[in-house]
Structures are given as structure tokens and as C-alpha cells.
């Protein structure tokens, strides 16, 4: 069983990770590089003359972008292990898993790992002011765990009580609140920060949908040949 989960996760994570890296490269990286011009002080806004919104950005950097591809694939293999682990549990209980309903699983993963944490801790553009990183990471994992449990109860729980508990779990991280900075000092224009956050979420949505599709496909394929 472990071998089946591992094999499916490697294939699904690799396929989705490569596509996620490509999407990030096209849609997120230019916004990140633009923000870094402000983070590094090459561009300054506020208090001076209006600044062009279309500066020349650094091009492809084999080392930097190669590492990004590698780490994106790694992270999506990690996601795939969690997703297919959950699929294996459902499968054992008689819930059919395939590429089509895998997309639903993937979208649930997107909600748990990207969207829910982003409600209170939006994807950060380089240079933004932020609270202590360890505190944010603890909150991030807490928000992910609570959302996974909440979505699990909605999908597999029975009765209104379970749904009530699910609602509490989904809302709790945001009622408790994420760590935020005491002062604002970010040099990046809000236009760039907003675009960065929505692009990061948009790419996450597509990539997790693809991850779910591949996870369902490879899990079913492995099950058929096992």
C-alpha cells in the first residue's frame, strides 16, 4: 500500500509541480521581480514623481529559476503524499477515486493549503512588513490543520452537529487571528502586492486542480495494476 501511495504521489507531484512551476514562471515571477526592484531600492514610489508601471525586469536566470522548478516539484510531491494518503483511506472505505473526482479533492487541498491561510495571511510579496516568521508558520500550520479537519467533516461526517463543528474549525483560525506586524514599512506599491497575492492564489487553484486530477488518475492506474 505504501509503495502504491508513494508511486502515485511521485508521478502526480512531478506532473503537477512542473506545470505549477511553468504557471508561476509566467504569472507570478514577473510580479515578484517587479516587487524586488522596490525591495532593493532600485525603484521608489510615494513622495516623488510617478513611476512607470512597466520597468525592465531581469530575464531568465538558469540557477535561480532552475532551483524554483526543483522546489516547486518537491513541494507538490509533498502535497501529493498528503492528498493520496487521504484518497487511500477513502478508497479503502469504498469511495471511488478517479481523475475527474480527483479534481474536487485537489480543489479541497487548494482551499486548505492556499486559500484558507491566505484569508488572514495573504501571500507576501518580497519586501512587505510581516510579523515574526516562526509565529506566522505556527499559525499557518494551525490554519491548514483546522481547515483540513473542517473540510473532512463536511465531506465524510454525518449530521448537523458535524457540520457545526466543521464551521467552527473553518472559522477558528481567523477568529484567533494571524500574526501581523506592529508597523508598516513595506516599500512595494499596493498595486503590485495585490496582484501578487491574487496571482499566487490563482496559480495555486489551477495547480491544485491539476494535482488532484493527476493524483486520481495515477492512484486509479496503480490500483488497477496492483
Amino acid at each position: 500500500m505504501f509503495q502504491k501511495i508513494l508511486t502515485s504521489a511521485l508521478f502526480a507531484g512531478f506532473c503537477a509541480g512542473l506545470l505549477a512551476a511553468a504557471l508561476q514562471f509566467v504569472f507570478v515571477q514577473p510580479v515578484l521581480l517587479h516587487a524586488e526592484l522596490y525591495e532593493g531600492g532600485d525603484l521608489v514610489h510615494f513622495g516623488g514623481e510617478a513611476i512607470s508601471a512597466h520597468p525592465e525586469l531581469p530575464g531568465f536566470d538558469a540557477m535561480r529559476d532552475g532551483l524554483s522548478i526543483l522546489f516547486t516539484v518537491l513541494i507538490y510531491v509533498g502535497y501529493a503524499l498528503l492528498l493520496i494518503g487521504a484518497m487511500a483511506l477513502a478508497d479503502e472505505r469504498g469511495i471511488a477515486i478517479n481523475a475527474r473526482n480527483g479534481i474536487i479533492w485537489g480543489l479541497a487541498g487548494f482551499v486548505a493549503f492556499h486559500f484558507a491561510p491566505a484569508i488572514s495571511l495573504p501571500p507576501e510579496v518580497p519586501g512587505v512588513a510581516a510579523a515574526d516568521v516562526a509565529a506566522r508558520q505556527v499559525w499557518w500550520w494551525g490554519a491548514v490543520a483546522a481547515t483540513v479537519l473542517g473540510l473532512g467533516l463536511i465531506a465524510f461526517g454525518n449530521g448537523m452537529v458535524m457540520w457545526g463543528v466543521a464551521a467552527v474549525l473553518l472559522l477558528a483560525p481567523h477568529i484567533i487571528g494571524a500574526p501581523h506586524p506592529d508597523e508598516f514599512s513595506g516599500p512595494v506599491p499596493p498595486e503590485i502586492a495585490a496582484l501578487f497575492a491574487s496571482r499566487a492564489l490563482g496559480v495555486g487553484l489551477f495547480a491544485w486542480g491539476l494535482l488532484g486530477l493527476f493524483a486520481g488518475y495515477f492512484w486509479r492506474r496503480e490500483s488497477a495494476t496492483a
Binding site: 515578484l32 526543483l70 516547486t72 501571500p123 507576501e124 518580497p126 510581516a130 516568521v133 508558520q137
Partner: peptide
């Protein structure tokens, strides 16, 4: 090494 990906994936970074 993972800087750009961490930002793009919405992980807390720095």
C-alpha cells in the same frame, strides 16, 4: 534556494 517558490506558494517567508 526556495525563496521565489515560498513566496509564490503563499508560505510565510523571511
Amino acid at each position: 534556494a526556495a525563496h521565489d517558490v515560498r513566496h509564490a506558494t503563499g508560505f510565510p517567508c523571511h
